[in-house]
């Protein structure tokens, strides 16, 4: 009998403890100070993942036999603005990719100019932060070639990708550092699985930054801005999801 009571009281206190723990976790989760402590693990992820390998290591590439039957679209499926619709109606012939900010030679490229440059085709796995993956074949211009033309100034530390779509009234944007910018698999893709990138997947230009999660792969890219710091872009966290939902700027895991 004594034992039974002990067990029951143990179970009760365990249940109460779990309840207390849960509300305690929520309180901690909502506290910015504690969030910073937790987020320090993400800094560790960044440092360790960057320290491993030779920093230019390629993400796995696959064959046509490995392609996902359907490449899932997520986030914005269509920017839906009249400008975008008008551009889409003429096959994005008037689309311009503008290089602004800390470049020695800021300039614009039309879609056809980009298509006439040397291309890279890669079959890679797209990993969403939510947990799903899709394998697709992407063709586009290596970003390095464009950076060589526009010439980064020494002060430039990050590239900000401005996009034609808005989510919840805010313009979508993303940013990467120069290590990823010059990575051979970092391309501005205009073809998916051998056809023009569909609107839901980011037509006409989508960034591929293969060693990071899906939300870094900005769609509907209209401009690339070279900056020394991300502080004055958006809310200063380096990207749309980073600003609105605390996603990590470095999305290697």
């Amino acid at each position: 009998m004594r034992k039974l009571l002990t067990r029951r009281s143990l179970i009760t206190s365990a249940a109460l403890g779990a309840g207390g723990l849960l509300s305690g976790c929520d309180a901690l989760s909502r506290s910015p100070g504690f969030q910073n402590i937790l987020a320090s693990a993400e800094d560790a992820n960044f440092l360790v993942q960057r320290a491993l390998g030779d920093r230019m290591e390629l993400a796995s590439e696959y064959t046509v036999a490995d392609l996902s039957p359907k490449f899932r679209a997520n986030g914005t499926r269509d920017p839906g603005t009249s400008d975008y619709a008008a551009s889409a109606a003429q096959g994005f012939a008037d689309w311009q990719l503008r290089f602004t900010g800390l470049f020695a030679k800021p300039q614009s490229f039309s879609l056809s100019a980009l298509q006439s440059m040397p291309q890279r085709t890669q079959i890679t796995r797209h990993d969403c932060v939510e947990g799903w993956s899709a394998i697709g074949q992407w063709t586009g211009v290596p970003l390095k070639l464009l950076l060589d033309l526009a010439q980064l100034q020494d002060k430039a530390k990050f590239l900000v990708f401005h996009c034609a779509d808005r989510l919840g009234g805010r313009p979508y944007y993303e940013s990467i550092d120069l290590l990823d910018a010059f990575h051979p698999q970092t391309i501005l893709a205009h073809r998916l699985n051998g056809e023009a990138v569909p609107i839901e997947n980011g037509a006409p230009l989508r960034l591929r930054v293969e060693r990071q999660l899906g939300y870094k792969h900005a769609k509907y890219v209209t401009g690339i801005e070279a900056v020394a710091s991300l502080d004055n872009i958006g809310l200063g966290n380096g990207g749309y999801w980073e600003d609105v939902a605390n996603y990590e700027w470095y999305a290697g895991i």
Partner: peptide, 19 residues
């Protein structure tokens, strides 16, 4: 009652998880 945090936040769940 089975998740941390008890409300849905992928970003916060990931921070707890990786830490």
């Amino acid at each position: 009652w089975a998740t941390i945090p008890s409300y849905y936040s992928l970003a916060e769940g990931r921070r707890w998880h990786f830490f």
